[in-house]
Design a protein around this nucleic acid. Structure first.
Lengths: 340, 340
DNA sequence: GGAAACCTTTCTAGCGCTGTAAATCCGCTA
DNA sequence: TAGCGGATTTACAGCGCTAGAAAGGTTTCC
């Protein structure tokens, strides 16, 4: 157990001022004379005083925390995103609580409605299973920012990217490179509105523009976004009588799994089959061959999310629902070099 | 700003009991009659009551948080570790605050001595730069568990693995496979005691057993544990008049970087050069070729760390410094197949 | 039938800090 | 020198909850 730490009253006594003055010094209240400030600071450091954040939060109503809920940190994309959110939050004096939802509905709704929400000034959620209806029914008024997906309109502030357009760009790039049979590997969409659904739609759009359509046999659904799922899905594609000549995986982790399966099966990438993903995770440029992917501006996503939270937290008026659209970039690497 | 949430007093009024009785129900105090409990629970759910954790923590002295400080989440090893710690902590009703230190001394000492420490019931730190002396001088009495490294004796509880033995095993495996010129790529050791130093020592030990020694030219120091560092270091090794036939990277991220450089340079792995790492990150088995590495029992590390914290938090007596040694496993994969 | 013994519930203080409003101080002006 | 106005500082009341002890109820036993 922790021994007694110095309290404000002790610092005040030592410095010969009131508690409130000490508090003013700590909180950089402007109207404190240099002399007083110095006295207080001396006492502060002499006693090694540390503010008790629970007490501060109780008294001030500001908790100093925000929650970040993502499917899981083992996906490098979310790990990186979390890192950026932690940094952006630090600039606002916020500490980040990370919740892992596994993309399941229960933990997701617990985050937006459970008692975590009492503890935080705001919530950043990357939803995977929650629906618009769930969110609309939310009673809690803690500021909420939704991440990553286009949908879930008008239930909360959002920072989104255009998944449909990005996926279409990717498919067009493949078509331009001379690919004819394009396959996709992605989560069985819980809902049309989630990433998989949107990316799938983008691919279909691009194919339609080219006067083709997505062969249902070439559209593989997986249970989760793990490497092993990507590898297994790829194996299924290879077992087809007429395998694809390009595969779009709906995230890089799946793509890395698929790529490993291709290497294992001695299929030449990109000569025989091209492969691409989404997210531009750290390992993408280091893969063999390096992976073509869609790069989101993750840092900006994190910053905007925190900014939206801060704005809503700072003003008591009801702000309108806002949507920030962040850009993306098609990063072309070796894995999708054109067929000769 | 958040609108008013129901308070204990309102629940109490609705249920027709005292605040303390409501509190007793919430905290599962045993002596509450089923009838009273039911009345209270009805009121609780009717009002959608959520406890205010700041107030609880102020009143009870238990914060409900622990801090986990690691260099950074972008290293998949730490991301995975963080995931496990979050899970283990949840079992103790603890929420985890993640701090990213970048392995720098300032953030590390801020974690163990700064005001975060006022806010948490315990700290799990994976130190990179902090020395025994720093830790010994620590005034703060918040329970602290050190992770990962052997050293830093007698300043805090530790969960460690035998880095020297693991590295020696790896080197022996390479020697057994017929490798003659073993190189290492690792952080310029801040101190002999950190992972790089210990792993390096293990390699030297195994070489000495075999009557050889580490060629200084084959020991490359890097500035950080990133993929690009591994690739650059590998490039330097390849530029040598007499390149190595095996490379031990002091973590998997470096190894993946080195591997990509090898692939780029069309060097056959493992035929021309074998490569190995530490940590068994998720992508290791999916690399081409799959990566031989040392696998720590990360889940157990997380669990033991949380357990140590819980024990120290739960008892007011001064427990002795404890050290938990977790095992490791040499996972042999394709990247170190023996030379023919 | 009455009192001891035990189970339940209520009462009363804070936990350590901040916000508000009021008190005090100080330098100037008239 | 008194009077003013703004700059500083202080007093004090909680924030919402839990701990400990007192009070109130009920059962049991002689």
């Amino acid at each position: 157990m922790t021994t007694t730490r110095p309290r404000l009253s002790e610092v005040a006594a030592l410095a010969g001022v009131s508690e409130k003055t000490v508090s003013n010094v700590i909180n950089n209240y402007p109207h404190v004379t240099p002399r007083t400030r110095e006295k207080v600071e001396r006492a502060l450091s002499q006693l090694k005083y540390r503010v008790n954040l629970s007490a501060r939060s109780l008294a001030s109503g500001r908790t100093g925390f925000i929650a970040l809920a993502v499917p899981g940190l083992s996906n490098p994309y979310f790990a990186t995103l979390a890192g950026h959110v932690i940094q952006a939050a630090a600039a606002q004096q916020w500490t980040v609580l990370i919740e892992q939802t596994d993309g399941d509905r229960n933990p997701e709704s617990e985050v937006v409605g459970g008692s975590t929400s009492y503890l935080v000034d705001g919530i950043v959620l990357h939803p995977e299973s929650l629906t618009s209806a769930d969110l609309a029914a939310r009673a809690d008024s803690t500021p909420l920012v939704l991440l990553g997906e286009k949908p879930l309109n008008h239930v909360a502030d959002r920072v989104v990217a255009d998944n449909v357009a990005a996926a279409a760009d990717l498919a067009r790039h493949l078509l331009d490179g001379g690919r004819n049979r394009i396959a996709t590997i992605g989560l069985d969409p819980h809902s049309e509105l989630m990433a998989s659904g949107l990316r799938s739609e983008g691919v279909r759009t691009a194919l339609a523009e080219a006067g083709r359509q997505l062969d249902p046999d070439l559209s593989i659904g997986v249970g989760s976004y793990q490497r092993a799922d990507g590898a297994a899905a790829m194996a299924r594609l290879l077992a087809l009588p007429e395998p694809p000549d390009a595969v779009i995986c709906f995230n890089d982790v799946l793509a890395m799994g698929a790529l490993s399966q291709l290497n294992r099966s001695r299929i030449a990438v990109p000569e025989q089959i091209a492969i691409a993903g989404f997210d531009d995770i750290e390992e993408a440029p280091f893969a063999a061959p390096s992976l073509t992917t869609i790069k989101w501006d993750t840092k900006r996503i994190a910053e905007e999310a925190v900014r939206l939270l801060a704005e809503r937290h700072g003003s008591s008026e009801a702000l309108p629902q806002r949507e920030i659209v962040v850009g993306y970039e098609l990063v072309v690497r070796e894995s999708t070099a054109p067929v000769r």
